[in-house]
């Protein structure tokens, strides 16, 4: 889908705010939100793609005005509700009413190992990649109406395969809790003028990581 989170190429947001560039948190609660999301991300039944989808599914006006960590917090509340880990009454009262789900809780002692392990998404593929480095490809204009990582500004554009990253978990399936469905992932290079018409000062190329289902074979055109 094309949502307000898909901002590449918009020019309506003005200048950057660069007054305190080394500050990561402006309030202590923001730290707790970050940690809550990481901890529940480790123990909750959802995945990173589902989390991103939850943030993008917030109302556009809220997404644009609430601030980064409020978006994370609102999406976490929605995930907890969607997966029936808490009820609306529990959220409203802050007290336990219903029976808890069985989760594997992230313990403090397990945090360093969990962060070190991360969540690698590269998978062995049963087939060969359809496209090779140097090959021209066109980005499909037909993409998922739900969560996708194909940004709007490259759709319909022609680029060149720069890297074949390997088989990676496919976010369009993963975000819908339909399994990993790994697909070949490519780094595609686009000329700025292909994306934007007349390119701006010193703009050369833009590289975007795109999964094979987002791409069309130029031969088939």
């Amino acid at each position: 889908m094309k949502g307000v989170h898909d901002m590449g190429g918009m020019e309506c947001f003005g200048e950057l705010e660069l007054s305190d560039t080394d500050v990561h948190f402006h309030h202590d609660w923001e730290k707790r939100v970050l940690a809550l999301c990481l901890a529940m991300g480790a123990s909750g039944p959802w995945n990173l793609d589902k989390s991103r989808s939850a943030r993008e599914s917030l109302p556009p006006s809220y997404y644009l005005s609430a601030g980064y960590f409020r978006i994370w917090f609102a999406a976490l509340e929605n995930l907890l509700l969607e997966f029936s880990l808490v009820s609306t009454d529990e959220l409203a009262t802050g007290t336990v009413i219903d029976e808890s789900a069985k989760l594997s809780v992230l313990k403090a002692s397990a945090v360093p190992a969990a962060l070190l392990a991360g969540s690698p998404v590269e998978r062995t593929m049963p087939d060969k990649p359809l496209y090779q480095v140097g090959e021209r490809v066109k980005v499909s204009r037909t993409v998922s109406k739900l969560h996708t990582r194909c940004p709007d500004y490259v759709r319909g554009c022609v680029g060149v395969v720069h890297l074949v990253h390997g088989g990676h978990v496919y976010p369009d399936s993963h975000a819908q809790m339909q399994g990993e469905n790994p697909q070949w992932l490519y780094n595609i290079q686009f000329n700025a003028d292909e994306l934007w018409g007349e390119s701006r000062s010193q703009a050369g190329t833009v590289h975007v990581d795109l999964w094979q289902p987002y791409l069309e074979n130029m031969e088939a055109q």
């Binding site: 309030h27 202590d28 609660w29 730290k31 707790r32 939100v33 970050l34 940690a35 809550l36 990481l38 901890a39 529940m40 123990s43 909750g44 409020r70 917090f73 976490l76 509340e77 907890l80 880990l85 808490v86 529990e90 959220l91 802050g94 007290t95 336990v96 808890s100 789900a101 989760l103 809780v105 992230l106 313990k107 403090a108 397990a110 945090v111 360093p112 962060l115």
Partner: peptide
């Protein structure tokens, strides 16, 4: 927001879903 974050952390702790000390370790990291 500050109140609601605290409230949710308490709720998730009581539900047995998180260990608050793990949050401290994540933040410190």
């Amino acid at each position: 927001t500050a109140l609601r974050v605290r409230s949710l952390e308490t709720l998730l702790t009581q539900k047995g879903y998180i260990e608050p000390e793990a949050l401290n370790v994540l933040i410190d990291t």
